[in-house]
Computed example of a mutant assay.
Amino acid sequence: MVAALEWWSGTECTLYTDPKSYPLYGNENAIVVLNHAFEIDFLCGWTFCERFGVLGSSKVLAKKELAYVPVIGWMWYFLEIVFCKRKWEEDRTTVAQSLQNLRDYPENYWFLLYCEGTRFTPKKHQISMQVAEGKGLPQLKYHLLPRTKGFYVTVQNLRGTAAAVYDSTLNFRNNEVPTLLGILNGKKYHADLYVRRIPLESVPDDEAECAAWLHKLYQEKVSENKKRELCGRHG
């Protein structure tokens, strides 16, 4: 599927990041926090993994229904992908157990996490910002409120084995709205991925403080142009 993105459709994905962080990518375990605004987000995330040699050892927190999708779901199951029902009372223990299995994983891995929990749409954004207002949180323009419980459990179970959080934001140029069907039809898109490496020790241990930290992370996500100014470019 990564080949379909880069070879078949010719889609270009340009990475912007701190040059000092660049040599560490692929050489350490990490939690990758991705935004979820496009149909092919997951393909660009896998491209990021493939570029640094960790595609085969990448893991995601995915909804249980995806385990039953032919080919992809079965492949994810055997690759030890962490599945959840999105019912936290049931998920907390099973997710923690799955994450504990990664502590002695024999290769460097990246754990990909969509903290928003669902893909961005105007309707979902409106509802999410009503929740933000009710909780006294700042409004987010391009993101939904992050779901903090899954992030906290991930951090606590991978602390000591994962070295960093990669704060990652994906955008497409020229207001493109990429689709999987477009990729399969050979349509070329232009993606920009902005990655900021944050040492895991800077994430608080306390659950409430960790939640506040994640909310602040989403509040700090900046526009494409600002990130282009702040980061070095790696094609």
Rank of each mutant, 00 (worst) to 15 (best):
K188D: 07
A162C: 05
R147P: 03
K149N: 08
H143M: 11
G53N: 15
G117D: 15
F52M: 14
Y105H: 13
E6T: 05
V165F: 14
I81H: 07
L102T: 04
A191H: 00
T161M: 08
G26P: 03
S58C: 10
G182F: 03
P23W: 05
F78G: 10
F151P: 00
K188Y: 15
L184I: 14
A4G: 13
W46P: 00
A212E: 04
G232H: 07
L79I: 06
E90I: 02
N29I: 01
F78D: 07
S223L: 09
M1K: 04
V54W: 15
E220R: 09
N157D: 10
V222T: 11
K188F: 04
A4L: 07
D104W: 15
L66Y: 12
L214F: 02
K87Y: 15
Y109H: 08
A3M: 12
N174Y: 14
G10P: 01
N27A: 08
P23Q: 09
L214T: 02
L193N: 01
R233Q: 12
S223H: 12
L217N: 10
E209W: 13
V153H: 02
G136A: 07
A96N: 08
K59F: 06
V153C: 06
L112W: 00
M129I: 10
K124L: 15
L214Y: 00
T17H: 03
E107N: 09
G53V: 04
F172Q: 11
S223F: 11
V203G: 00
L66T: 02
G53C: 12
H143Y: 12
P19G: 02
L99M: 11
L170K: 01
W213M: 04
Y25L: 07
T93R: 07
G235M: 13
G235C: 15
Q156H: 02
K63N: 11
N171P: 08
L66R: 04
L230P: 04
L230N: 14
K187H: 06
T93L: 06
G160H: 13
G235T: 14
A30C: 09
T94S: 10
P146F: 07
L43Q: 02
E201H: 15
T17S: 12
F48E: 05
Y142W: 08
D206P: 01
R197I: 06
A30L: 03
N29Q: 13
V153K: 00
E90M: 06
I81P: 00
L137W: 07
W7M: 07
E28V: 02
A162F: 15
F151G: 00
P106K: 08
G10T: 01
F172G: 02
T121L: 14
F52K: 03
Q100N: 11
R86Y: 03
V60K: 02
E89I: 05
I183T: 10
E65L: 13
Q126Y: 09
T179F: 14
V33R: 00
E39L: 02
P23R: 12
E220T: 12
L180P: 01
G56I: 08
R119H: 06
N35Q: 10
T94P: 01
V165A: 08
E90V: 03
C44F: 03
G73I: 03
P146V: 13
V203M: 00
I81Y: 06
